[in-house]
């Protein structure tokens, strides 16, 4: 069975991938889908109940929560994806370099990783953001900066596990070029690990960006972002507790979805997995 078929046979993989695609599509088509302008304030209509005009009610400034939720997909998902590609890219590059070439290269990279891992990650994010200033792009830099070391270490372990396998030894023995060993043997062998890490990382990045926005260090005020929306809901926790349900539930669902997808992708990418 080939990859596409295995993917289609795995219900979780298909369902979660479709869901994420749907969300992404909603984000792209936000102007069409959103019932109201996400920035338009209507102070007289604040804390409105669920209604046809405002399906999820309005917030403390009378802005449509649903519209803000839909527009919020763009920064939330987009930034998470950028962060994920950044971390995985940097981590994979350094991890593979360390695991494959060994020797002094590995020592230098791994000691650097050790140093990175010995810092508490949230404090590092705050430090980076404080140093570079509050902005979206600095949040991404900070996230990539603290997280790549985890990936480098895990990917190195994966590479080391396979580099002494007999099939790699055979390739070495008969003199296959290094790039064949790297791109045909090692990289595909670690893709299942990578896919799981990547999808888990998206979940982590969404939460982290939301946390930073929640703390006021990430996406700034009028821009609708799910974490920032939660932050605003927090201010009116006592007067309008319903307001935090929508962004909260959205974050939980999307993160869960990515985590499930990671699990399903692992099964899909493993040819030994017998379909149930």
């Amino acid at each position: 069975m080939n990859l596409g078929k295995r993917f289609l046979h795995n219900r979780t993989a298909v369902a979660t991938a479709l869901f994420v695609l749907l969300i992404a599509l909603a984000g792209v088509c936000a102007p069409v889908l959103a019932p109201n302008d996400p920035y338009a304030t209507d102070i007289l209509n604040k804390f409105a109940d669920y209604s046809l005009q405002y399906p999820l009610g309005t917030d403390q400034l009378g802005r449509c929560v649903l519209s803000r939720l839909i527009y919020g997909i763009r920064p939330t998902l987009g930034l998470a994806m950028v962060t994920m590609f950044g971390t995985i890219g940097l981590g994979a590059l350094l991890g593979i370099t360390a695991g494959y070439f060994r020797g002094i290269t590995e020592e230098v990279i791994m000691r650097l990783v050790d140093v990175m891992l010995s810092f508490p990650s949230q404090i590092m994010v705050f430090a980076v953001v404080a140093l570079l200033g509050v902005s979206v792009q600095n949040v991404i830099i900070a996230n990539v900066f603290i997280k790549w070391a985890w990936y480098a270490r895990m990917i190195r372990t994966g590479v080391m596990q396979y580099r002494d396998c007999n099939f790699v030894r055979f390739s070495r023995c008969v003199g296959m070029p290094e790039r064949f060993i790297l791109f045909r043997h090692l990289l595909p062998s670690i893709t299942s690990d990578l896919a799981v890490l990547a999808s888990l990382d998206v979940g982590w990045a969404i939460i982290n960006i939301s946390t930073l926005s929640f703390l006021g260090l990430g996406v700034q005020a009028p821009t609708p972002e799910w974490g920032a929306m939660l932050n605003e809901a927090k201010e009116v926790l006592t007067s309008n507790p319903v307001q935090m349900i929508a962004p909260g539930a959205a974050i939980v669902t999307l993160v869960c979805c990515f985590n499930l997808m990671g699990d399903a992708l692992r099964d899909v990418l493993d040819p030994k997995e017998v379909e149930g």
Binding site: N166, F167, H185, K272
Partner: peptide, 8 residues
């Protein structure tokens, strides 16, 4: 068991 790449 490890002589052949399981993905090939």
């Amino acid at each position: 068991t490890t002589s052949a790449n399981p993905r090939f």
